[in-house]
Nucleic acid binder design. Structure first.
Length: 855
RNA sequence: GCCCGCUUGGCGGAACUGGUAGACGCACGGGACUUAAAAUCCCGAGGCCCGGAAGGGCCGUCCCGGUUCGAGUCCGGGAGCGGGCACCA
């Protein structure tokens, strides 16, 4: 009788049922253990993509599983809704960014709801909504009061055509990614968040985050970049200035043969003021911006200022002072001493300008009299030479000694340097959170009074000329100074959209609160127990959020140190690529297979098969999830996302794969519905097990129950999928029950199967649960308990090796005594043959594992 | 250049802390059902060799070497692929 499972009707039915019963609305309940599952919220680009489907499916598996395990689960969704694409749409299509964004949100919300995710939609937030960004402005003012936000001049990437600052990521080969114009370096007044105040803590806590991927912790540690060294003063000969340099190798101080300033160093500017040649050199250094190509090929070049500095430890030693293009202003002190023998850059520089090369570290085994440095600096460990009181010491000892001496002399001290720099958040753009400050000619920078927040974005803006629409607006920036009442100007910059996403997970705890967050709710729900998203956010978003939680803590908003207790980074969704004869990319719907694995266009033209690559618009290898869900249903799409590939690795989308997932959905339906004819009534008797068949089925079901739970806990969804296939195969092989105990065993197995599939295929599971005669909804049911007595094996198969090669297997009781196992193993004909008449020298019996006979 | 990860059948992958390599799926081959096809169900399968079969042998987890009764797993060296950072003193 088994008709086909009607995917569309059934999925819609259960989605409505869950919504009507508010199954996923989370309530603060301090008496229940909480579990906060969060997936990185999407940018509302217009439609969901396969990456979203994978991400939200994983999160939903965890959310539904934890709910069944008795946790009070918070699983919210929102929109990272500010950002440049909305402004681009405004420029290209004439639609207002707000309209464009909210329409996109409406479409994507519908698409996500069609996936059957167990989300609490009552908590939905959009960062572009004033009810969100007004609180962000409050946080900004809090940070300002705590001096965690400040304003300073800094060098930025400036696009002269679009007239805006670009992030480093938006500069491609030295050109603006939109305009294609060569990017200029400009000095602008920008707002910064003082993330460097937490460098040490951000680094240290990485050690204590066991549920974060090692890779992400390492990337953050490298990004923060702690290094120990010394700051050393070199007095400038002939005046009272001192040059402060930073080095990680104070042990090589006796090998110094020059000092060098960054072109952007204040002292360089002083020199340039009286020296046109120096000024010209500095100007030449300017275009040396961020372009990697330039850096890789750039020669070490310098300008001899004519000034000399005095070596702090060697009397009468004077070193030339250069301005050098390879010295960075924003690391260390913007000045270095050069030790050519032990630093490759310094050596290249010294060779070019004929400066001394004095080896001061001798590699192990080298001879002090013949050791020479020519084209390759020696950067390894060794013993100090030519270094007076350091001679004979190892590198680490020498560092300590020289720092101690410098500190005695008042010429320097040990310091710790970080690579991490403060976070510049000003953007000259419209579609972002306005920075709530006012610039007054008399009073300076004045915070917008809190009671007048929010500073709303004006609706009536135009995008017909380049630059910042807020700045062009005829009246928006004109305000009275809150302090003196005179005419003043609003800050027309908006915040980097990474600010919006740095605290949204906290806002979800109390999304309608009048304050940025409600303390009780945050104390209950945070930290996020499981955060899931792409590896591309390993540094930026995840580091900024870690900063934000610390800053919010120090402003009294909450009491935790880390936002995300557990982090999982998912792999990408990939697909084959196709190109036509002219090399143009073709979409998967433009091609069809021809026999032997090849493809042709719909017009019959030849197609070149390309690599499997991340789905992207540029390669046209995307598959639209909405079309897939329309054709196969949400459960099928979800199941495919979880099958085969481990969740942290890339997943290749294939038509065969999705078809296979659909077949399995139909098979499960048929299997359970057909079993209904043979099943006893619900509750007709506890599943005893008299027959071996019944017992075997019960063992399989409980074994699957145990391992699927473990697999989900450990994010091994592909294994959980395999276990469910196995149980389904067992049930299929069982056939019709032949006795009452077999009927109840079959019912039990079917019910366990339905529980197991529930986190992954919730609609099908819910439907089968009902078919099995239940009146409750499965979402409200607890995860069943595995019976330990059944998961323990009574009879086990042991392999027997002879000299490490498998020769036979025997079946024994799990608790059989060792000497009987040994006896049986040695008597096995295969073993006897393999022993070739020799007597065993040793017999190793590993309980419940293996027997190895050594002859 | 520096740091990190990965490498198992035709393919995705499994093998928990050293203990039966290839679970499960995809693709494939054979069969059943059908007028036929689709759908479904059953069977087969790492490679090579012996055997009619039952069964058995040899080789096999990127390469070379080591530790061990036993290595996909641990150690040393190398290759290939991928990722992150990069004039950071």
């Amino acid at each position: 009788m088994s008709q086909r499972y009607n995917v569309k009707e059934t999925e819609a039915k259960w989605q409505a049922a869950w919504r009507d019963a508010s199954c996923f609305a989370a309530a603060d309940d301090p008496d229940k253990p909480k579990y906060y599952v969060l997936e990185m919220f999407p940018y509302p680009s217009g439609r969901i993509h396969m990456g979203h489907v994978r991400n939200y499916t994983m999160g939903d598996v965890v959310a539904r599983y934890k709910r069944a395990r008795g946790f009070n689960v918070l699983h919210p969704m929102g929109w990272d809704a500010f950002g440049l694409p909305a402004e681009n749409a405004a420029m290209e299509k004439g639609v207002h960014p707000a309209k464009w964004t909210y329409e996109n949100i409406a479409v994507m919300r519908g698409q996500l709801q069609g996936m059957g995710l167990s989300l609490d939609w009552d908590r939905e937030i959009a960062t572009c909504h004033p009810d969100y960004y007004r609180h962000e402005q409050v946080l900004f003012l809090d940070f300002l009061e705590q001096e965690l936000a400040y304003r300073k001049e800094s060098w930025v990437n400036w696009d002269p055509v679009d007239q805006t600052v670009l992030a480093n990521e938006q500069v491609i080969d030295g050109r603006g990614w939109r305009s294609g114009a060569p990017v200029e370096r400009r000095k602008l007044a920008q707002w910064f968040f003082r993330i460097t105040a937490y460098s040490e803590s951000l680094l240290e806590r990485l050690e204590d985050m066991p549920r974060w991927p090692e890779k992400v912790r390492l990337m953050q540690a490298n990004w923060i970049g702690r290094s120990e060294g010394a700051e050393i003063d070199f007095p400038v000969i002939g005046d009272d200035r001192k040059l402060k340099v930073f080095t990680t190798r104070p042990d090589t101080l006796f090998g110094a043969s020059f000092c060098a300033l960054s072109p952007h160093h204040p002292m360089s500017a002083q020199i340039a003021a009286g020296d046109p040649e120096a000024a010209a050199f500095i100007a030449e250094c300017h275009p040396l911006g961020t372009s990697e190509e330039v850096i890789a090929t750039a020669e070490k070049r310098g300008y001899d200022t004519g000034l000399k500095v005095r070596h702090p430890l060697v009397e009468d030693l004077e070193l030339p002072l250069y301005i050098a293009n390879f010295v960075l202003m924003d690391y260390g002190t913007g000045a270095i001493f050069g030790c050519p023998a032990h630093d490759q850059r310094d050596l290249d520089f010294a060779n070019r300008y004929g400066l001394g090369v004095i080896p001061v570290i001798l590699p192990e085994g080298a001879d002090a009299t013949s050791f020479r440095i020519e084209d390759e600096a020696f950067v390894g460990d060794g013993v100090a030479i030519n270094s007076e009181f350091l001679d004979g010491l190892g590198v680490e000892d020498a560092k300590r000694r020289v720092i101690a001496r410098l500190e005695e002399l008042g010429s320097g001290n040990g310091v710790v340097q970080f690579r991490l720099r403060d976070w510049g958040i000003s953007r000259q753009r419209y579609w972002g959170c306005p920075i709530p400050v006012i610039h007054c000619a008399d009073c300076g920078t004045v915070p917008v009074p809190r009671e007048t927040l929010p500073v709303l974005l004006p609706d009536d803006v135009t995008f017909d000329k380049p630059g910042n629409p807020l700045d062009h607006h005829p009246s928006w920036k004109q305000v009275a100074c809150p302090s003196c009442g005179k005419a003043a100007l609003r800050d027309t910059d908006t915040m980097d959209t990474f600010v919006d996403s740095s605290w949204y997970f906290a806002r979800f705890c109390s999304p309608r609160s009048d304050a940025p967050i409600a303390r009780a709710a945050v104390d209950y729900w945070l930290p996020v127990d499981q955060y899931i998203g792409g590896i591309e956010h390993a540094v930026l978003h995840l580091l900024y959020s870690r900063f934000f939680i610390r800053a919010m803590r120090d402003c009294g908003h909450l009491a935790i140190d880390e936002p995300f207790a557990g982090l999982f980074t998912q792999g990408m969704v990939c697909h084959r690529t196709y190109q036509d004869a002219e090399g143009r990319w073709l979409t998967p719907t433009d091609v069809r297979p021809v026999g032997d694995g090849g493809f042709e266009t719909l017009e019959g033209q030849p197609v070149t098969l390309g690599r499997v690559e991340k789905m992207s618009k540029s390669k046209k290898n995307t598959v639209d999830p909405a079309a897939i869900i329309e054709e196969y249903g949400a459960d099928t799409a979800r199941w495919f996302m979880l099958s085969d590939s481990p969740p942290d690795r890339d997943l290749e989308w294939t038509d065969e794969g999705i078809a296979g997932a659909y077949r399995f959905v139909q098979r499960l339906w048929r299997q359970v519905v057909e079993a209904l004819d043979h099943l006893p009534e619900r509750g007709a008797g506890a599943p005893g097990a008299n027959s071996a068949r019944a017992l075997a089925l019960r063992r399989s079901a409980h074994g699957a129950l145990r391992s699927v739970g473990e697999d989900i806990d450990q994010f091994r969804f592909n294994r959980a999928v395999a276990r469910i296939h196995e149980l389904s195969n067992e049930i299929a092989g069982f056939g019709a029950p032949e006795a009452a105990d077999e009927g109840s065993a079959l019912r039990e197995a079917c019910e366990i199967l339905v529980h197991l599939m529930n986190p992954m295929m919730p609609h099908l599971a819910e439907e089968l649960w009902q078919q099995l005669g239940h009146e409750t909804m499965l979402v409200q049911e607890a995860w069943p308990q595995a019976d330990e007595a059944l998961t323990a094996q009574a009879l086990i198969t042991l392999p027997i090796q002879v000299n490490g090669k498998k020769r036979a297997t025997i079946d024994v009781e799990a608790d059989a005594p060792e000497d009987r196992i040994r006896e049986e193993a040695l008597a096995h004909p295969n073993v006897v043959r393999a022993m070739e008449g020799k007597s065993p020298r040793n017999v190793i019996v590993v309980p419940k594992r293996i027997i190895n006979v050594v002859v």
